[in-house]
Amino acid sequence: MARPAPSQVLRRRKVRRSTWLGVGLVTLYLSVIVLIPLAAVAWHAAELGPAAIWRVVSSPDTRAALQLSLFSSLAVAAINAVVGTIIAWVLVRDTFPGKTIVNALIDLPFALPTIVAGLTLLALYGPKGALGVNLAYTRAAVMLALLFVTLPFVVRSVQPVLMELEKDVEEAASSLGAHGPTVFRRVVLPSLLPAIVSGAGLSFARAIGEFGSVVLISGNIPFKTQIAPVRIFALIESGDSAGAAALAVVLLLISFSVLLLLAFVQRWGRKGDE
């Protein structure tokens, strides 16, 4: 069979009928599972109208929850950017006994159910914890839970980039007299930056929606430790599903814009490679 040249294929390509059938089936599944339910949230919020949404979001307790969520998620993303990069560095460039086990354990927060994560943290940092500190029902506890569940993101996005990074470039820089920190800042950091940003962005998106790990250890005290998802939960429980939908839409908008931004960052990172 003589095949037409690729450029011709691109220009003349007609979408095959079986492809349309496949796209239809995929869209149907996605619609039933994801899109229709999310549309219901948007619909219920839209029915309220912008003014009412604003009233819900700016009511003192909801605003406090949203603020806490935003600030703690930002802080968690920042801490992960630093510590996650250090952990990735140690896992790639350092050698020590037990490294394989440590490397495997990084994935544990992805595999451990969030409610169990919350309980484990409470067992150590709650009342009668082994370390003698009691963080239960404080904002520090909220941070701790968020740091636990978001641990893998930056490590796992920086690790492969660090592995591919040519060591010769660093060695050349040091042999030309650049010191460790300078080499890191001028040579290593720029190549890692897209990976760090995308890992931090993913941790932010995960942290702002997190529920299970926070619910036991934070105590869910309004104005103090109640985060936005827990606030939504409280609104649902009290039968105010319209208010819950309004706050849910705000949360969805925040995480969608972060992920959209990340898509651009990734494209920018890929351009850097070429």
Binding site: A40, V41, H44, G209, E210, F211, V258
Partner: peptide, 13 residues
């Protein structure tokens, strides 16, 4: 990108 709480809410709605 969707909080588990929002998933639950969406199914209720």
């Amino acid at each position: 990108a969707v909080s588990p709480v929002v998933v639950g809410l969406s199914l209720i709605l």
